[in-house]
Amino acid sequence: MDLSALRVEEVQNVINAMQKILECPICLELIKEPVSTKCDHIFCKFCMLKLLNQKKGPSQCPLCKNDITKRSLQESTRFSQLVEELLKIICAFQLDTGLEYANSYNFAKKENNSPEHLKDEVSIIQSMGYRNRAKRLLQSEPENPSLQETSLSVQLSNLGTVRTLRTKQRIQPQKTSVYIELGSDSSEDTVNKATYCSVGDQELLQITPQGTRDEISLDSAKKAACEFSETDVTNTEHHQPSNNDLNTTEKRAAERHPEKYQGSSVSNLHVEPCGTNTHASSLQHENSSLLLTKDRMNVEKAEFCNKSKQPGLARSQHNRWAGSKETCNDRRTPSTEKKVDLNADPLCERKEWNKQKLPCSENPRDTEDVPWITLNSSIQKVNEWFSRSDELLGSDDSHDGESESNAKVADVLDVLNEVDEYSGSSEKIDLLASDPHEALICKSERVHSKSVESNIEDKIFGKTYRKKASLPNLSHVTENLIIGAFVTEPQIIQERPLTNKLKRKRRPTSGL
């Protein structure tokens, strides 16, 4: 017993010596996670971090007073192994002897410093981030199933929210409404489509400006004509009531908005009720001829604005009016007729031209339509002016008669200019590109209106002035400009410049 007691005391002394060697000089306990400095002193990692955080910048070693920084600290694995072995020896000594260790306080702390507990403390002390800490805590505590279930439920809930957000973003663009038309193969669909197009076009005519009305009406008319041609002859009974509906809707729209509806009346003529396609083609032919005449008058307007600064050229074209007008009339009417003589009366030419125009518009179905009313009214106005011209010709002399006839021709041009508003800008460009020769010939008609105004002003003063002067240069210039014009009389060319000069002198006297 005595020997055993001596041996136990010796073992205890050895353990105490080893414990003092492996103590931390700051906390005076076994080193936890030993860290060595540049001066080869060993301290606990937790104690050194606490010391360095007390001051900004480098701190001093507690043993040798040298500078220490966080970067200079290094882990010493050898001392950590020695500490672990010492703890194992102490545990074995207690089991063999059955005696508690003399320094129970220190031993209890040593026992608490088992490797499992050290790992837990290291995970908390090290600044490795929240995710690494959570992982280490889960690994160190596998015995708690409640914690695992809560963490898994949190992760699953987070994943569910992310997935639901993604699915919502994908589903939202798919919620856009999609309209699908289910059509049938019955023959009544074509008639319904035609009526739908006509009503939609009328609404567009009321909303859209004048520049786009003609294009819309032309497209709708083409669509309706194609649909009529596709149907068989057996379905004509269905077409006639639908066309009557079209007429009623167009008349109502014309009564409500007459000014807006006139812009599309000329282009919509071939959508009118037709028994066969031949009647629609004839109407299209007549409309094309009318559009040609209207576009020519538009060309004359532009030329008149350009040549208004040259009064000499405008005056020299006075007698070329009849010849150029004959050529335009021959090209406007498709019928083959002989040219009228140069010395014939211009009023007779106008009456013949009106007689040619009237039969074209005397179809029984055309008179029933609303768009032809505008053309009939313009023709009636022309006839009224010609009836007035006959009365004026009986009273005035030959020279005054010529000037009045020219004035009436200008009035006719004004009437025809009203129809110019109905034609589109695209048709003007096509006419100029296809028929430049006709445009040059028809330019002379509009330029002549300037000389007509001068004659009217001469009649106000009650006299006409003449001068025997020749202007050969002007006649040559005008002959080169206009290709299809005829030779003019030299006496009238000489008379016109004198009248304008005298007018300039006598205007201030009349004002006084």
Rank of each mutant, 00 (worst) to 15 (best):
L137C: 14
L99S: 04
E100R: 08
S186K: 04
E29C: 12
V14L: 03
D2N: 06
L63S: 03
E121H: 05
L159D: 13
E188T: 12
A302T: 00
F107N: 11
N113M: 10
G129P: 12
N106M: 03
E29A: 14
I125C: 08
L73R: 01
V11L: 05
I26K: 02
N103L: 13
K38H: 12
E29D: 15
S157G: 07
L95S: 07
V11W: 01
R131A: 08
V154E: 08
N53Y: 07
K65S: 02
K88T: 05
A92Q: 00
R7G: 05
S104V: 09
L3A: 09
S4A: 02
Q169H: 04
Y179W: 06
V191T: 11
P25E: 03
T212V: 06
T97P: 00
I68F: 05
P142N: 15
K38G: 13
P145I: 14
I124Q: 13
V14I: 15
A102I: 12
G160W: 13
Q172F: 01
Q148M: 08
P142I: 03
S72G: 12
F93E: 00
L182Q: 14
N113W: 02
G98F: 15
L156T: 13
E149W: 03
M18Y: 07
I31E: 01
E116S: 14
I89Y: 01
R133Q: 08
Q126E: 06
Q155F: 08
Q155N: 03
I125Q: 07
R78N: 12
T37A: 08
L152Q: 09
R136A: 06
C61E: 00
L152G: 08
G98R: 04
G129R: 09
L99D: 02
E149K: 13
P25Y: 07
S72K: 12
P115E: 14
Q60N: 09
C47P: 00
R166F: 11
S177G: 08
L73Q: 01
T176I: 05
G129L: 05
P25W: 02
E149D: 00
V14P: 00
I89V: 05
G160L: 11
A108F: 06
V154K: 11
E75A: 01
D185A: 07
V14D: 01
G98A: 05
K168N: 13
